[in-house]
Amino acid sequence: MSLPRAASLTLLALALAALVAPWPFTSPAVGERVVRLTARQFAFDPPQVEVAQGERVVLELTSADVVHGLYLDGYDIELKVDPGQRARASFIADQVGTFRMRCSVTCGPLHPFMIGELKVRPAGGGARILLGASLATLAGLVGLRDDDEALRD
């Protein structure tokens, strides 16, 4: 493998890691966080929730119109709730990142798009994306030198 190609691939891997890899520099928080969510066609309220890594999260789901559910990506947690009732689940937010909360009970036409977000800090959001995009661009530029060498050969 040529040097530029190797460098380019390394940069690609770094870009991906910047986007989705677990954050290494964390000091897990302790404590409990109660997150109250109200589901209604076709949203969770609040739509975006932030917790700290290591916290015990208690999800408390209610519904304001029809039967809804909640499936949390990454944590494989599912709740179902009838309007006026309350469903609870608790877990330790050990994985860092942004996880989608999806309605898990068909609740009308836009049901597949009924999505909320749980952010487990330090998710780095904007910083991660900025770093990922920069590294990917760099990988593309470094890869160019590979073409040059190939042309020279």
Binding site: D65, V66, V67, D82, P83, G84
Partner: peptide, 12 residues
């Protein structure tokens, strides 16, 4: 006469 009805909440 018997009434049949919905038993799960489906809106107001």
């Amino acid at each position: 006469e018997y009434t049949f009805y919905c038993t799960r909440w489906c809106g107001p």
